[in-house]
């Protein structure tokens, strides 16, 4: 059984063992970390998606895809996006006449709430809603499940057999 001192020494040495200086590891957050949205956050996102997308929003996986894309955001922008659902949820309680958090509203009320945010004369409300709307719609329509509704045929790859042109100055991957 190693002593407490030995365990601490081992932990202290781990960064060096792994090839990373201690200060660097401490300064490097896990860039692949997810948003850790809870069930309420997810319910808010799905409610907003249903309101902005419209009928059949449940056919697309926009919320799941947004969660996956989260890892690609940089630094503190993650913090901003992470708090968007709860901010929208709680601010709706204060700013919209329903006096309820967004996730407590029924679909008709949620639609009215979203419309209220979209038409707000307050810039910060339009910005919060605009960010949510943009993130959700972009991910929704990147999902092939939504393409039949807009008669979008999708990638050419798989539909047309077209050769890749030879490189004029050589392949940078080759020696």
């Amino acid at each position: 059984m190693p002593s407490r001192r030995q365990v601490l020494a081992l932990l202290a040495a781990l960064p060096a063992v792994l090839g990373l200086p201690e200060e660097a590891r401490a300064a490097e957050p896990d860039v692949t970390a997810g948003p850790d949205w809870d069930a309420t956050d997810i319910a808010v996102l799905k409610g907003v998606l249903a309101a902005v997308y419209g009928p059949n929003s449940d056919r697309c996986d926009a919320v799941e895809a947004l969660t996956a894309s989260f890892a690609w955001l940089d630094g503190e922008r993650k913090a901003l996006v992470r708090m968007l659902p709860s901010l929208f949820d709680q601010a709706s309680r204060v700013l919209v006449p329903t006096i309820s958090a967004f996730h407590d509203l029924d679909p008709v009320q949620q639609q009215a709430c979203v419309d209220d945010w979209a038409a707000s004369p307050l810039a910060f409300r339009r910005q919060i809603f605009g960010a949510l709307r943009q993130l959700l719609l972009a991910h929704a329509y990147a999902d092939p499940a939504t393409w039949p509704d807009i008669d979008y045929p999708g990638p050419w790859l798989g539909r047309y057999e077209l050769p890749i042109h030879p490189l004029r100055f050589g392949d940078p991957e080759l020696p």
């Binding site: 419209g54 009928p55 639609q111 979203v114 979209a118 329509y141 990147a142 939504t146 807009i150 979008y152």
Partner: peptide, 14 residues
């Protein structure tokens, strides 16, 4: 592509 295009069309829902 439709994901980017969708963000510039206004309105909500149906």
């Amino acid at each position: 592509p439709p994901g980017i295009a969708a963000t510039v069309f206004s309105g909500q829902g149906a």
